[in-house]
Design a protein around this nucleic acid. Structure first.
Lengths: 200, 200
DNA sequence: GTCTATAGAAAGATAGAC
DNA sequence: GTCTATCTTTCTATAGAC
């Protein structure tokens, strides 16, 4: 109560970010004007600069938050013990996490070229960290002799591309549930790295 | 000789398209101005409108040409006979074709949202035609009992996403040759659809 | 914290000279 | 076929009133 004044200071900032996320995902960063974002929020264009120093920083903050959310979520996710279990956990986590925030995912992949070189580098470090999580699993399975992967680096890139591709076609309420999609992709990923079907 | 006049009419058009392709791929359609394209070609901005009615049509023509090139190239490609041979042909064709024109591929995937609804529909029809070529192969293998695919539609999307992903990391002169990349991806694709390794 | 007003730059597209 | 010049619109960002 004490902190709730007549102003909107506690909510306008997040609403600016939410509007920018939606609009950037729909039309692309360069095609969306600050005026358009302001109109979506219901304020004047000038007011946006209370919440971000400029448009570039607004984009960068959205992408950085997304990548940090991703890494944090993977950090606390159930991981499994054996390499096949770990891979299944990664596959399911990746699909679930990405389907839950399609706009942020879209921006994180499509707007990299609209970042300044400095900001691009910072995002790439976060992305690399995530890719390494998968590569670690593939290496572990390869060493243990339960995976048959010709090249762990390529398999990492191939699997992530395959899994992220779900976002391009999945529609809520379509033919398949998220659970079923996870199931089918895990089956393909499992086979792709040469894991035999286990009992169950 | 008779057709070669002092003008550049036979070369400027293609050069405009080549410059636009390069710049759109690098910075994005919305971020590239007509003036920037003109500067790249070495003409004034106004001169571009001799070769395209507007910026939107320039983008559409680039994407349409790319998709038509893709379909035409697949039409005349070696196809194989059995489903596994056909799938191998598709995998190798897809990687080779896409690595040969990274700019056009990038645009075809990233700039869909900058098309007008009418133009978007026309491109989607071409894309669907290509996807159907792969799905036909997967269905044939499934019917013949040589593939083990839980869902041919999803497998189609998964494989295309996986294969197209090569463009995001492949660099000429890097650790692996194109031939080796084709080999590794074919191995993963083959396993993903449940084909046993054949002799060779 | 939000508004109006505006500075200053740049955009897409067109007109008319050569 | 290309140029210069320009119309008209829109953009990011800032200044200052309330």
């Amino acid at each position: 109560m004490a902190r709730k004044t007549g102003s909107h200071s506690e909510t306008t900032g997040p609403r600016v970010r939410a509007a920018a996320l939606r609009l950037f995902a729909r039309a692309g960063f360069a095609a969306v004007s600050m005026r358009r974002i302001a109109a979506e929020v219901g304020v004047q264009a000038g007011a946006l600069y209370l919440y971000t120093p400029d448009k570039q920083t607004l984009l960068f903050d959205l992408m950085k938050s997304h990548m940090e959310d991703l890494l944090r979520a993977w950090d606390v996710a159930e991981k499994g013990k054996t390499p096949p279990e770990r891979l299944e956990a990664f596959v399911r986590f990746h699909i679930r996490f990405h389907l839950e925030r399609p706009d942020a995912v879209f921006i994180a992949y499509m707007e990299l070229r609209n970042l300044t070189p400095e900001n691009f580098q910072r995002i790439e470090i976060l992305r690399k960290t995530y890719e390494d999580a998968l590569e670690d699993i593939l290496c572990a399975g390869q060493v243990a002799g339960v995976f048959s992967v010709p090249d762990t680096k390529l398999a990492t890139m191939a699997l992530i591309a395959m899994l992220t591709g779900v976002n391009t076609w999945f529609r809520e309420g379509g033919r398949l549930s998220r659970e079923k999609v996870e199931e089918i992709y895990w089956d393909m990923a499992r086979k792709a790295v040469g894991v035999e079907q286990s009992g169950g």
